[in-house]
Structure formats: C-alpha cells, structure tokens
C-alpha cells in the first residue's frame, strides 16, 4: 500500500519521518510481543506507520511513542479478529485459561530462593505465553517504559484497569518464572 498522491506533501513527509521513524524498533518490539509472529508483526508495523502518516495532520502530541502504539494496537487487534475467523487461527482462549490456572496453582510459600536469571530467549518465551491483554500491559510497562497514564491511553482503559492487569500479569509471569526455574533444576 502506498499513500496516495494528494497526501504527497514533502514537508509533512519530512516532519513525519523525523518524528515517527526513530520509534521503529519500539513499534516492532511491541508488535512482536502482541502478535507473536515475525511476518505479521512486520505487516502490522508497516500498516501502523501508513495510518499514522495519514493522521499525522491531527497529531497534537503529547508524546509520539504512545500515539504510535495506540495506532499499532488497533492494527494488531484487527489482526486478532482476522485470525479468529481464519481456519488456521491461533486460538487464544485455551492458553489464557491455562495461564490463569497456573497462576492459581503455584505454591505460594513466603520464603523462597532467589529468582534465577534466564537468557533473553527464555524470558521472551515466558512473556509471550502471557494471555492477552496482560501481555500487552506488561510489555508496555516493562519493555517500553510507558507510565500507567500512557498505557491507559494506548489500551483505551482506565488507569485502575492498567494497575490490576499489571498486577495480574506480573503474578502470572512470576508463576511461569518459578515453573521454569523448577524445570531447569
């Protein structure tokens, strides 16, 4: 898809590139975590940038990164919807159910050994296993360093929801972390 000629304003293009392209790695990182697929993430980021360019005239701030993320998130949600109707769609529900039960079943003894370190791939796998929308909140906070307010704006939910989702996400990650730790023994 190419932006049509009526929007072909060199000055706008220059300002947009300058403002938005520095966040390309951030956007790609978010898309990878949200979609858990390389090709889908690339398509989503490209679509995000083209949509952002179209709406750049109405962009009034405050910060470019959360603004881009809000657009990217909508693109990704459209992709979920498409997957759900596609015959080969990745079914999200059983996984989130599995995660929720894992959270509840983890033994909760106060005195525990130090949380061990894992390599990047292992941690990414643990994060990727979190159910939507906890994964989204978690990644926006822990990897993208957004504030609760910014996350609330990106995900279009109240700040209180961000707080509870984040608590839930970290609890699930902790359980998965401990399980991984147990397995690695």
């Amino acid at each position: 898809m190419v932006v049509n000629a009526s929007q072909d304003d060199p000055e706008k293009a220059r300002r947009f590139r300058e403002a938005a392209l520095p966040y390309l790695d951030d956007a790609y990182t978010l898309a990878r975590y949200l979609l858990r697929d390389t090709a889908d993430a690339e398509d989503a980021v490209q679509e995000c940038y083209l949509r952002a360019y179209k709406h750049f005239d109405s962009y009034r701030g405050p910060a470019m990164k959360p603004w881009l993320f809000a657009i990217l998130r909508n693109v990704c949600r459209a992709e979920y919807a498409r997957r759900k109707t596609a015959p080969t769609a990745v079914e999200e529900v059983p996984e989130s159910a599995e995660q929720a039960s894992m959270w509840n079943e983890t033994p909760d003894t106060p005195e525990r050994q130090m949380m061990r370190r894992f390599d990047g791939d292992t941690v990414r796998k643990l994060i990727a296993a979190l159910a939507e929308p906890f994964r989204e909140t978690f990644v926006l906070r822990e990897i993208q360093n957004l504030s609760y307010r910014e996350i609330a704006d990106v995900a279009a939910v109240p700040v209180g929801t961000v707080m509870s989702r984040l608590a839930r996400a970290r609890a699930m990650l902790r359980s998965a972390w401990l399980a991984e730790q147990e397995q690695a023994k």
């Binding site: 060199p10 690339e42 980021v45 370190r117 390599d119 941690v123 990897i143």
Partner: peptide, 25 residues
C-alpha cells in the same frame, strides 16, 4: 539485565521508507 527488545528488520525499514512519500521528490 536481559535484552528483550527486537530490532526492526532492515527490509521492513525499507518497505516503510518506500511507502511513505519522499521528503523531496
């Protein structure tokens, strides 16, 4: 202490560059 970020592939960067209007035709 772990690098959890992904780097956008060069090809994606090029695709986006190409799809956006050029700053100076």
């Amino acid at each position: 202490e772990t690098d959890l970020r992904y780097k956008a592939p060069l090809e994606l960067r090029r695709r986006i560059e190409k799809a956006l209007p050029q700053p100076q035709p």
